[in-house]
């Protein structure tokens, strides 16, 4: 039994601490994968977070655990892990711009549309944290969909709501975040 299967079955067995164990595992795996993939990809290629997460799922042995519940927990952890990776990336990129530090950034091209400006991504993350304070469900849907590539249905199942409701959360959160960023930008 792989680590992940063990943890997931622990979670289902009611061991809530297991959730904490899941995150670092997924985080490390995603990092490793991203770095590996970037090393082999041609410059200019965009690596999709979604693809990364799915690959991580397979590599961590998720297929042994086909029940949705386990997959749902994995998604939640992956979304959080992916978000942290991207923040890290954006911070480094910012530091780079300011000439503070230089480090080879391993997945420069990761979803270029968002990461073109590291600062922008950090703003998004700030906004997301704010949304989390006000409306945790909606924020969770964003993490799942945006960072882990979950579908509405998958996100809905993680949250225990219908896909239609998840979709409504997404629509709301997207408008909310967009407005938040718009304001942040106009202030800056």
């Amino acid at each position: 039994m792989s680590d992940i299967t063990r943890i997931l079955s622990n979670i289902e067995g009611g061991n809530s601490k297991a959730t904490d164990e899941l995150l670092p595992l997924v985080y490390e795996e995603l990092r490793r994968l991203a770095a590996q993939r970037m090393a082999h990809e041609a410059p200019g290629h965009t690596l999709q977070p979604t693809a990364l997460v799915h690959e991580a799922w397979l590599r961590l042995g998720g297929e042994e655990n086909r029940k949705w519940d386990g997959r749902g927990h994995f998604f939640a952890a992956a979304a959080e892990a992916m978000r942290r990776i991207l923040i890290e990336h954006a911070r480094k990129k910012n530091a780079l711009k300011r000439g503070v530090d230089f480090e080879r950034v391993s997945f420069e091209e990761l979803d270029g549309a968002i990461l073109a400006a590291g600062e922008e991504f950090l703003l998004l993350n700030d906004a997301l944290e704010k949304l989390e304070g006000e409306d945790p469900e909606a924020a969770q849907v964003v993490k799942l969909r945006f960072f882990a590539g979950a579908t509405n249905e998958e996100a809905g199942r993680v949250l225990g709501v219908t896909s239609r409701t998840a979709k409504r959360y997404w629509t709301f959160a997207r408008a909310w975040l967009f407005q938040e960023l718009r304001q942040a930008r106009s202030k800056a």
Partner: peptide, 13 residues
């Protein structure tokens, strides 16, 4: 927020 929704385009995909 509705205005933001309309203007959001491909924001977050």
């Amino acid at each position: 927020l509705i205005a933001a929704h309309a203007a959001a385009g491909s924001f977050l995909g």
